Amino acid sequence: MTTDDADRGDDLVDDGEDGSPADRTKEELRRTRERLGEGADKAVKGFDDNVVDLLAWLLDTETRARIYVYLRENPRSTSDEVADGTGLYPSTVREALAELHDEGTVSRGKREADGAGNNPYEYEAIAPSELVRGVVGDVQAELNAVFNLDRRLGGESAEGDDEPVQISVAGADGNGDGETDPSGDDADGENAADDGDTDR
């Protein structure tokens, strides 16, 4: 019997001080809600940690991932607000924001302010689907290099390699962006000369 079981058993024993059975039931429901809430908080934290880990892979560092997540939740934030919200050093945040802006992962604009003084930049992060589109080409090229390894090891030219892997990313609305990519694929990821061997 665990300590929690003993506590619950003690709660259910009528010692004359706890009141009516209805009061005891309400107290048990309250404790159950607290335990469920604690479990939900742990699950959400675990999910958040996994998202940050994935974004750290996409964005190179956990620091950049934390800044990205903060800006998705709090668009139009200044570097000082990002530093306060993430607990990162202001100089680290400024440096990371400058890199993310140069890469096109965040956009920035001057904050409108009344009166004299320096108007700081406010930052917004691009949508996750755009972030993924940015790395899809690199991942696709690396996967295709692996698929065509036998041809390359046989001394044949890398030119003319088939591209068995084609990755398309749908936007938040579930549709492709409607643009044709350089490989000749349409937004649905289907090649006009598709041989029908695989379902992509």
Rank of each mutant, 00 (worst) to 15 (best):
G104F: 02
V82A: 09
G104V: 06
E112Q: 11
E124I: 03
G104C: 04
T180H: 06
R8K: 14
D84P: 00
E103L: 13
M1S: 06
A187Y: 04
A83C: 14
Y68R: 09
R111T: 01
L143Y: 14
N118C: 01
E130C: 03
S157R: 09
G39S: 10
G176M: 03
V135H: 10
D10R: 15
D5T: 08
R30P: 00
G85R: 15
L131P: 01
R31N: 10
D138N: 09
L71E: 12
R133T: 04
N74Y: 11
A43H: 10
D84N: 12
G174I: 09
E142V: 09
A65Y: 11
G137I: 08
D14T: 07
V132H: 03
G39R: 15
Y68N: 10
E73T: 04
A158S: 14
N148T: 09
A127C: 02
D84F: 06
Y70C: 08
V51D: 03
G115Y: 06
G104P: 00
E62N: 04
D23E: 15
G184P: 02
G154M: 13
V51G: 03
D10W: 14
R30T: 06
T198H: 14
D177V: 01
A172E: 15
T86V: 13
G184D: 11
S107I: 02
D41G: 01
W57F: 06
R31Y: 02
A65F: 02
D18Q: 15
G171P: 00
D188R: 01
V51I: 11
A127Y: 08
A98H: 12
D41M: 08
D49I: 02
S168M: 08
R64H: 10
D7M: 08
Q166K: 10
L153Q: 07
R200I: 12
D197R: 15
A158T: 13
G154D: 15
F147L: 01
T63Q: 12
T2H: 14
D199R: 07
A98V: 09
G104N: 07
S77K: 08
A125L: 10
F147C: 05
G87E: 14
V136G: 04
T92A: 05
F47T: 11
N74P: 01
R66D: 05
R94W: 06
A141K: 12
N144A: 05
D84G: 03
T2N: 15
N191G: 09
D177I: 04
